[in-house]
Design a binder for these strands. Sequence first.
RNA 1: GCCGAGGUGGUGGAAUCGGUAGACACGAAGGACUUAAAAUCCUUUGCCUAUUUAUACGGCGUGCGGGUUCAAUUCCCGCCCUCGGCACCA
Length: 1043
Amino acid sequence: MHKKFDSSAIEKKWQEIWEEEGIYNVGARDTSKEKEYVLIEFPYPSGNLHIGHWYTYAVPDIYVRYQRMNGKQVLFPMGFDAFGLPAENAAIKRGLDPKGWTNDNIAYMKNQLKSMGNAFSWDKTTSSTDPEYYKWTQWMFTQFFENGIAYRGKGVVNWCPGCNTVIANEQVVAGKDGDECERCGHKIEKKEMPQWMLKITEYADRLVDDLDEIDWPEHIKEAQRQWIGRSKGAEIDFKLNLPTYSGQVLFASNNKGKLARMRKLVAETSLDITLISLEEAGITDTEVVEDENDLALNAKKKALHFAKQTDLPVLADDTGFFVAGEELDPVTVKRNALAGIDEKTLTIEEVGEKMVVYYAEIAKKHGGEVEAEWKNALCLVMDGQVYMSEGVRPVILTDEAVGNYDPYLPVRALYKAKATGKHALTHNEEEELMELQPITDAIERVFEPKVTVFTTRPDTLYGATYMVLAPEHALVEKNKDRIENWSEVEAYIKQTKQKDEQDRLDNTKEKTGVKLEGIMATNPASGEEIPVYIADYVLGGYGTGAIMAVPAHDERDFAFSYKYKISKPKEVINIQKEINEKVLNRGNGVGVVHWDPEMIQITDLNTGKILGFKYRLGDVSCHTCYGKLINSAEFDGMNSEEAKLAITEKVGGRMTNTYRLRDWSIGRQRYWGVPIPIVYDSSGKAHVVPKEHLPWTLPEDVDFTPTGEPPLAKSEALKKRTEEIFGKGWTPEVETMDTFVDSSWYFLRYLDNKNDDELSSLERQKEWMPIDLYFGGAEHTTMHLLYSRFWQKALYDLELVTEKEPYKRRVNRGLILGPDGNKMSKSKGNVIDPDEQVARVGADTVKMYLAFMGPYEGANYPFDLGGIAGIRRFLERVYGLDDHVKDEEDEKTTKLLHKTIKKVREDIENYKFNTAISAMMVFVNHTEKSGLTKDSYLAFLRLMAPFAPHVTDELWRPEGKGQSVHIDSYPVADEKLMVDDEVTLGVQINGKLRGQVTISPTASEEEARKAVESNEDLQKHLADKEIVKFIYVPKRIVNIVVK
RNA sequence: GCCGAGGUGGUGGAAUCGGUAGACACGAAGGACUUAAAAUCCUUUGCCUAUUUAUACGGCGUGCGGGUUCAAUUCCCGCCCUCGGCACCA
């Protein structure tokens, strides 16, 4: 090798030329090419690129360049996720300006990133701190607020004294003694405060179900499913021996007619209550965002909204649903039933249509025409035809069928109907159709003293012999006068409050609890009276905060019941399969001292499947299997699965899901983030900052010293701005948003990064979404990936995006460890500085070495300084490979080239860059000896271009008429040139390798046999032996069985 | 405890529709070149045994123990270990 390989000079030269030529800018969508959107997680501009960034960005660049050379238009954008704590900490510690500090870092890191030589689409870049970016972050928040997705919640939050801020549950990690902050390691305190929340829980089902539609590795999907933690079960009401409520009840309406009617209904009941209207209760905040499709949810929303504003019980209703507090009681009114309305599944439009059709039938029966009002739509029926106003689809009713629609009819028809002025359906007539009894019954039920439990095993209801409430359950405090041992109960509640959730859920600790003396519940199935306990292992925030305890079929209930000698387990499930019992370790730590049961695993003999576990102690036992019911009255003999539904139905329960996932708390008491675009009027009511005032910029006159008060509260400029725009007495929200919000939509902004009118136009989204491939770190599996999926779905519902799911495919990469095999850290002194490596061996070498360490997906690899030298040597040899170019090459070399092309292509598509590189090394090792033609040499340069973009362009340009190799095509293997005319097979005798034969790949068994027989070495082994069997698998193996 | 991933030379790793285990690279050893070193090039390199130190032969080898098969790193059963996640979720 005579040329000197000066990687620094080469790399600098080509980076400048590429930038000048702009060959990596994407520009407008070119529809003559297939699109490919490759996304990498954008970095936080900490100030310096580390080797992990290289692994994150430089290796996927191989895939990007490969797709570009395959003729696709590839979008590979890069930006900065630049809000966050480090900037603010720098401000606190060193008195720097967070904005300046961040911008300096961005500028510096941009240069470092350019030294990578990646094919980034820099023309599409963005930064989350750019006001033109966060303007849209804020605008989306206002849309979420107006649609009930963002709300001001109240609740217990994790307060980190280190960061002086609230952190989300997901950001809390388990430490040695209790919860710790993921970022700073301080112990977390529980604090109650108002919080801005996003309703991710409302999307829980879709977040689980839509996983089936995307092509992600199964383990990542599974992690998300577990995080969401959906469990299917039932809510069941247990009556309590408490007196029925009497006194005032708030009715969630100001509609006088409705109130009068409801009062009349209440009078029909045995209840001693008085309904008062919202106005009478002095409630002014009456805006409730209703869901258009879910009637039950509407009633519940109303009830919840007003329950927060009063101490009175609240009664709300909506088309057949009656709600008090949070407890829902659906009633199928006769009218609805006759009209064929199933409240659970129909939209409001569909209900309206059915209702009108039903009225039409009545009208026909009376031989007349009926005019009726339903919801906001005026519906009318004439000549057997039904019309509805206000955008509701008209229904044309004929004698035979219902269901032909004419969109032009309603308005015209409405005037016509009014002109005819025919008979209208009166309230009295309507009431007749409603049948009062079910409604009054429902209202009575709503006020019945009861507690609702959530259970995944309603099939074991007959075995429920006591109940347990969370100590913080509202019912406990409310009934303190009736609880005979209140002082003991109160002490226990106090003790619970001191524990954080981690303590309460610690299964090595003994379970504790207290009986509520004087309160009894009734098992709704068996009718038995059962005692009620409180215990801290039942959590207020999960399910309904109350459980039914089935000691015969739940391990924890068995333990608790054994400790407090509550009741003998009542077995209601019988396992009828052929089972196998295997005794496991003794003692399983469910938290009762001296409780050391025999633990037995129960397996199905036929399938080998684990059915459940059995715990035995003396003459009592508990098992968790499914089976056939016993001791369950009319359900005896039924299967568990069937019985779940049947029993729930019998006792008036509701099948429902419950989730581990909690709403996303996005408010931060911090400065360096997106200001939440909310202002409060003088009465304290929240209003969004209208679009014309966005971006609602971050003020700069702020003192960062953490005092527990949010920094923005100290800004005079923000106060002044708010009063100037909105008026005197108005105050700004002083919280900023979690940075996970910024990263929930950046991939949309890349597409349309200069758009002043929209966050990202639907046209651009149609061109580029969904993201074809998202490379990222495993640490984002449950947080960023779940939040951004939720964000996309919320936008989808507002018709702001085109896709339900943002990411089609996802690849999780591993970590680069220090040379000692440990995680890199300054304290361990094992940090590899990428700039230093680039200066030493060049960017191409660093990139290729990172790709060569192992498969990209999954594992962690130690950085080896010897290993990187090997790659540098390889590149030097490639640099000198043109010395071996000659006019002719042998057939073997041509074959090897095509085999290498095929292998490299396959490997890139499977993210196995390591074996692709090794195949290219084999090719170079071979051709250095054999020589190769110019054509083969150039094909090889193109093959290697994605891996070592600088050196290949250096070698290519003089040959490529001045055009970059990176806009050329990727070589394609010619199958015809890969066919081998002979192949060497291993020959085994009795399964042991004894020699080799070289034959044609299409050789017959007979030919193979001849080849073996003519081989002297093999003959030695075969002499005096009888060949029992001769196995020949073409192109694979020969195996001879001898005696 | 449960769930997931994994366990292959001194090291990173390769080979799994069952078909010559250890590709490629690092490291190590020897040699060439050099005054010398570096760089480069050549050779050797899973372990064991034997001998003529060069070569063939033999044995053992993919965490451990079984099984299926002509043939198992690959499939099945049991166990051990490592890493990651979750942890009384009713």
